[in-house]
Write a protein that binds this DNA or RNA. Structure first.
Length: 296
DNA sequence: TCGATTTGACCCGT
DNA sequence: ACGGGTCAAATCGA
């Protein structure tokens, strides 16, 4: 294992410990909000570091692109047109898992159009390929891949590649509910599958909702993002949440550039999201600190 | 009728 | 040669 990978694992382990500590705090309502915010900030910093290390590592392995289209018709069959090889900017892959619908069309606030499906060697279930509906109208390069988990049919693994550059996000749901379900996964898909399975037993899928806080530095091409998971918690009037669970999963967000805060529903119906929104905008304030970006 | 999905072939990296 | 990603004609369905 490379040194960088060890460092990243070390950072992530630390983040996990802090998340557990935060969960413990949340179980005891006596702990102060400031203490919780400090923990959140620390967790963010740790993940920031880990992602930064990985992005450095990624830069070493520059992605190879497909070569530009060449017009040679020498051996192409007449019945098929030449394949267009568009330049694609594929950024770091984001992976998260979702539960619920059988068709795998996980609602994430964007319009997707399926353009392919493939049987994957070694997998029982095929992988479906989706691109943003606004790919041609707005040159949006966002792409996602959805594959049903082999181990748990109720779990879908979703990979996001590229970022949405379109302006056609579906309207944020009217929220009100307080049940939130959020997952993060960057490098531990297997573990996440387990976590989601466990969570799906504890939380009614119909009420699940994903809240994503996403930070990305596109200019630096680091595609850095932050996400949090606050499953099964409730927000009170002060914008603090009352939580009984914190599963400590990660889930990459689906879109956006720069700093974004986004609510995406998996099968959910919400009313009254103001408290949640205000909470997360306060989180943005925490996140949007100079120290956070100083490492970049 | 037209947009979305399906599906087999093509392209490319390993 | 093989596997994964994408294309695009055919098909579906609202």
């Amino acid at each position: 294992m490379m040194m960088e990978e060890k460092l990243v694992i070390s950072e992530l382990e630390l983040g996990k410990d802090l998340a557990n500590q935060l969960m413990s705090n949340l179980k005891h309502t006596s702990s102060s909000a400031d203490s919780n915010k400090t923990l959140i900030s620390e967790i963010l910093r740790i993940y920031q570091n880990a992602i930064f290390m990985l992005s450095l590592n990624e830069d070493k392995n520059t992605l190879k692109r497909r070569s530009p289209e060449i017009d040679d018709d020498k051996d192409s069959k007449i019945m098929f047109k030449k394949r267009k090889t568009s330049e694609k900017k594929t950024e770091k892959v984001k992976v998260f898992v979702a539960t619920g619908q059988d068709n795998g069309s996980i609602e994430d606030g964007h319009c997707w159009r399926k353009y392919g499906q493939k049987e994957i060697h070694g997998s029982k279930n095929p992988r479906a390929y989706y691109r943003c509906t606004h790919r041609f109208t707005q040159n949006c390069v966002a792409v996602k891949q959805v594959q049903k988990s082999d181990t748990d049919p109720s779990v879908y693994e979703v990979k996001y590649l590229g970022n949405h550059t379109c302006n056609n996000n579906m309207a944020s749901p009217k929220a009100t509910t307080t049940t939130m379900n959020f997952s993060v996964s960057m490098f531990e898909e297997e573990r996440n599958r387990v976590n989601v399975t466990e969570r799906s037993e504890e939380i009614k899928p119909k009420k699940s909702e994903e809240v994503m806080i996403n930070l990305e530095d596109l200019e630096n091409k680091k595609n850095i993002f932050r996400t949090f998971s606050f499953p099964n918690h409730e927000f009170n009037e002060n914008g603090q949440w009352k939580s009984n669970l914190f599963l400590g999963e990660l889930s990459p967000a689906t879109s956006g550039s720069g700093i974004t805060s986004e609510i995406v529903t998996a099968p959910a119906s919400l009313e009254n999201s103001e408290t949640a929104d205000s909470y997360f905008s306060s989180l943005d304030n925490i996140i949007d600190q100079d120290w956070l970006w100083s490492a970049l």
